[in-house]
């Protein structure tokens, strides 16, 4: 395993990380993330969570929809088990994202810790930037490059979480409302952009319609049924279309 000597031009891990950190620092996703996490910090402040708890949630959960749902559900007094179900449902998307990203990033020589960290940093922002930029880097630098992007993005989000928490009192309400709107808006267009297959597109539309409908109808586990019904129906449509072709 250890026979792969690193190149003479310095460590590829260090070079990749620094390049990734620079790319992540100037990414347009920084703006969206900073706005989003200001709103999450302000939401958590208004609902009475401690600052250390909110900052830790940004660092270890690192998924805006999960955090918004978790914070508002816990504050509303939802049972922990129900909160965990809602969070895990919003996290399903991370599985196919990691499966798509890792083969591009890793080599046989990649350390498991580096791979695990890249998986942790996987979120729509880091994923889109890594898919776009990592293929241009030497392959032995890519895990570190993606982790550099992830570090820069999570760093900006963490600072924004703190800022949102402490400025919650002075931020005008229409501004906080606008920043809270960043999460659904950015996920709506990111999903549309990432949906290449007919099954993804049908599933996206089905999710928009089904979830509010199931909530209004009072069906429990609405997100789970939205995913299973909408996703499976969309998958079956794709199969039917392909069978005919």
């Amino acid at each position: 395993m250890a026979e792969h000597e690193q190149g003479s031009g310095g460590s590829p891990v260090k070079a990749g990380f620094v390049a990734g950190w620079s790319a992540g620092s100037v990414s347009v996703f920084q703006l969206v993330l900073i706005g989003t996490y200001i709103s999450i910090g302000a939401l958590a402040h208004d609902l009475g969570f401690p600052i250390a708890w909110v900052v830790l949630s940004t660092l270890i959960v690192w998924a805006a929809p999960a955090q918004v749902i978790m914070i508002s559900a816990l504050a509303a007094g939802a049972p922990p088990f129900e909160v965990a179900i809602a969070v895990t449902l919003t996290g399903v998307r991370l599985l196919p994202m990691v499966v798509a990203l890792l083969p591009i990033l890793r080599t046989r020589a990649s350390s498991f810790a580096g791979v695990l960290l890249a998986a942790h940093f996987t979120a729509v922002s880091m994923w889109m930037e890594s898919l776009r930029l990592a293929p241009r880097r030497p392959v032995e630098e890519r895990i570190a490059f993606a982790n550099g992007i992830g570090t820069a993005l999570i760093g900006g989000a963490t600072i924004a979480t703190v800022a949102g928490y402490y400025f919650a009192r002075v931020l005008p309400e229409p501004l906080v409302a606008g920043l809270l709107f960043l999460t659904p808006m950015s996920f709506l267009v990111s999903v549309a952009r990432a949906s290449k297959m007919i099954s993804d597109r049908i599933a996206a539309v089905a999710g928009l319609v089904l979830s509010p409908l199931l909530v209004v109808l009072g069906v429990g586990l609405d997100l789970m049924w939205t995913g299973l019904i909408g996703g499976t129906a969309a998958y079956l449509v794709r199969r039917a279309v392909r069978a005919r072709a």
């Binding site: 809270l180 996920f187 599933a203 996206a204 999710g207 928009l208 979830s211 939205t226 794709r238």
Partner: peptide
């Protein structure tokens, strides 16, 4: 994976619709 991605996509736009329709906090 095609099926998992379809399920995940429906859940994600389901979350989008939920946040927009049943808005949290200042929203």
């Amino acid at each position: 994976l095609v099926w998992v991605r379809a399920v995940a996509t429906a859940i994600l736009t389901g979350v989008v619709a939920k946040i927009v329709v049943f808005a949290p906090g200042a929203l």
